[in-house]
């Protein structure tokens, strides 16, 4: 390589490094400023709202889309927040639970899905959903570092924290999806008339999966469960933790539910398994949106049931 070419190459590399680093920081800090003011949308608004209300609410619900769509938190407590989010698992929930103030009196409902818990492939990568708070909130930063789910490049290019969410943030900044002041985190699934046919077809063809022989608990999920367990110890005088599995349309395998119940019982964690609550009532498709999600009608009915159980449980504690 000629000396002239080498100089050109070094100049180009140096300029790219400096400029890309500078642009990255400018955009990152701009997105920080914008995102801190976003209170709507699943990408960041819901997380921001949670961080704002987490230590002032009486009841919190954690979990995935089934928690989000199944638990009408208003029915349980007028000052409650449902932090259920689509596609996330116990890694995400455990990290958020550990950000709670242990001294605040609260009821915490953790929605757990047995199927996810016994899934070999689960690796806790849902924790990446918290990356917008990486290097901004200590407990989230240390959980992300510990998880190994953060790219080493993320310490150079900070905008990677906003990977996949920048457009959603801008959209919700310019035009909020809803008024967060009247939002409690519960999102009802209303089945429109035109969708009922597809829904009924799916439910009619819902063949229950056979039980497999593999009922080994996923070690990653177990590790995150243990982190929740540690927090329950830390906050035991102030917080009531209830682990819940909400109904599924047609679950044929009771073995995994039993194993999970045993694990939680051994840890002295309260577990209510409602998986088969409406199984005998399978003809009433109006309760469902699909095989694993209940409609708004199903959610109302289920939450009423949950409320009764919760009231009975609270009375028994007194």
């Amino acid at each position: 390589m000629e000396t002239k070419t080498l100089k050109q190459l070094l100049k180009l590399i140096a300029l790219i490094l400096v400029l890309s680093y500078t642009i990255d920081k400018v955009v990152f800090f701009s997105l920080n400023t914008i995102s801190d003011n976003v209170m709507s949308g699943q990408a960041i608004g819901k997380l921001n709202q949670f961080l704002k209300v987490k230590d002032t609410t009486n009841l919190l619900v954690f979990g995935n889309s089934r928690a989000n769509h199944h638990i009408v938190v208003d029915k349980l407590n007028p000052n409650a927040y449902n932090m259920g989010i689509n596609g996330i698992g116990i890694a995400y929930n455990s990290t958020l639970i550990n950000t709670l103030n242990p001294k605040k009196k609260q009821t915490v409902i953790v929605h757990i899905d047995t199927k996810n818990f016994f899934n070999d492939a689960y690796d806790g990568s849902d924790i990446r959903g918290l990356k917008t708070k990486y290097n901004r909130i200590d407990k989230i930063t240390s959980a992300l570092n510990e998880s190994g789910k953060i790219s080493s490049l993320q310490n150079i290019f900070y905008t990677m924290n906003y990977n996949g969410s920048a457009v959603g943030i801008l959209k919700n900044f310019i035009k909020p999806k809803y008024n967060h002041l009247s939002y409690n985190g519960y999102d009802p699934l209303v089945v429109s008339k035109s969708k009922t046919e597809v829904r009924d077809y799916m439910l009619k063809n819902d063949i229950a999966e056979k039980c497999t022989d593999n009922h080994k608990v996923n070690p990653t999920a177990l590790a995150y469960l243990e982190k929740i367990e540690s927090f329950t110890e830390e906050s035991k005088n102030n917080k009531t933790f209830i682990f819940v599995t909400s109904p599924i349309h047609n679950d044929a395998c009771a073995v995994d539910n039993k194993i999970l119940a045993d694990i939680l019982n051994k840890k002295n964690l309260t577990f209510w398994d409602f998986t088969n609550l409406y199984k005998t009532n399978n003809d009433d498709t109006s309760l469902w949106k699909d095989k694993t999600h209940m409609s708004n009608l199903g959610a109302e009915k289920f939450t009423t049931h949950l409320l009764k159980k919760h009231q009975a449980y609270t009375s028994s504690l007194k």
Binding site: Q8, I16, T159, G164
Partner: peptide, 21 residues
């Protein structure tokens, strides 16, 4: 030019950070 190429590549790097899958 070198400067223009630098700007283009830096913008691509930013887009990659924001949208990589």
């Amino acid at each position: 030019s070198t400067i223009r190429l630098t700007i283009i590549v830096s913008i691509i790097i930013l887009l990659l950070c924001l949208f990589y899958s």
